[in-house]
Design a protein around this nucleic acid. Structure first.
Lengths: 243, 243
DNA sequence: CGATGTGTTGAACGTGGTCAAATGCGGTGG
DNA sequence: CCACCGCATTTGACCACGTTCAACACATCG
């Protein structure tokens, strides 16, 4: 089981999560209604349609939101990183499957008290609005990927997204030789990209053969030339860096 | 030019738009900073990357948000109906092309005063959060469509979406013989669905041949059996009716 | 060891894309 | 009234990309 922090003061997502704008007093109130839950890689947090009596922030690890059709076709519709928010105030049942793809720690708030607090504390709603607008932008970028990009472009885009995230989390600077772990199985990548896992595997091999990426093991990728990768992704250069 | 209403009291979107929760005083303040703009079908409202010094609500008509890649591939990422909100508080440049697909009237607010008012009037931010969360849900539904549905399912889904909207706007009851106009060209449908316009046309013909829909002219569709349509769309039955 | 999970690769197939031509419809002008 | 044009749409023929089905490689774990 991954371990959890205790105090909001120490919290690694303090300044990015839904609580980011809260002052000391507000934080103290939140601290009273919060509790941590941990999940191991592969565990399901909630199933679509289940009653969900909490909302939460991802503290560490990665979770996914997926939708499933009756015949089993699956599409990932959200990739939740540390500080991202799970659940919707005012909604009683989960709309998506939430799954831990790595070991995961979530900071949970019982829904009722959280909603009451939202009414009294504009800072929370303001921050949640900001985060939701960001997610909507990300979803729209994703729609372009799903609707119009080739398999090769989709793979390159995914790697670029992960690389940018690592940079923005301060894990490494842009100038260094870029190297990163893909925290997803080939199947999860396929669910993300609207492909089959075979196509994912083939295109990874193709990008490797063409020197766009270097594979070190199955999950570790080195990017010798980031601009080349962006080009392969079909994105406007620098898209995603300016806001 | 389509004509515009004058008073918030008469406004057809009064109780659904971003101003829905505002009381009389707040509405009076909004009334001072609002102005109407009209566009003819086909006109562009703003181009992606342009400076955008206003935010707005769609009053009547339909607009689209689209993203374009350098080589011209286009993906629609938003379909804006009456009461939907355009623009993002705090953002200076438009992130998407906004186009009027029918004659369009928008209720605009200059961005600066609107942002200031948001700070002082929680009702606006609250409502905007609600609307943004709804849009995010819609975007995720759309992602499933783009990533995993067949061309035939995509077409059936689009028709079902339009039909549901017409019902929810009270234009017709569910029990009646369903009949609706598609307010999009075949090309716009293709941009919406991540298809080519030829495939859209072919699948429309196929659904007609199989009796799922009846075409009366190019843009008017009769749905003899709504459940059959839903089945063709690959959706859970009743998906979208319960919230 | 075999069993299981994860990933790679190959061959055949089919859906949807591409390119091209034809059709239909509304508007404009002779 | 009809000829003509422009545009949206339909239809056809062919092709390619990504899927499907299958075999195989490799690591971890009982």
């Amino acid at each position: 089981m991954p371990s959890a922090p205790q105090e909001c003061g120490d919290c690694p997502i303090r300044h990015k999560a839904v609580c980011a704008r809260c002052d000391g007093d507000e934080l103290a109130l939140l601290e009273e209604i919060k509790y941590y839950r941990s999940f191991e890689a592969g565990q399901t947090v909630v199933w679509s349609g289940d009653r969900m009596d909490f909302v939460a922030s991802v503290v560490t690890g990665i979770a996914t939101l997926t939708q499933t059709m009756e015949d089993g076709r699956r599409q990932m519709v959200g990739l939740l990183l540390p500080s991202d928010f799970v659940g919707r105030p005012g909604r009683e049942f989960a709309a998506y499957d939430v799954t831990a793809t790595t070991d995961l720690v979530m900071c949970c708030f019982r829904k009722k008290p959280f909603e009451e607090m939202m009414g009294r504390t504009p800072h929370i709603g303001q921050r949640l609005l900001e985060m939701t607008l960001d997610e909507l932008d990300a979803a729209r970028e994703w729609m372009l990927l799903l609707g119009r990009k080739t398999a090769r472009e989709k793979i390159a885009s995914l790697i670029a997204i992960i690389a940018r995230r690592d940079v923005s989390l301060g894990l490494r600077s842009k100038s260094q030789r870029l190297s990163l772990d893909i925290p997803l199985t080939r199947e999860a990548m396929a669910d993300y990209l609207g492909l089959t896992l075979e196509t994912v595997s083939r295109q990874m091999s193709a990008l490797r053969k063409d020197g766009v990426i270097v594979l070190e093991g199955k999950r570790h990728v080195v990017i010798p030339d980031f601009d080349r990768l962006i080009e392969e992704a079909g994105d406007d250069s620098d898209g995603g860096f300016l806001v």
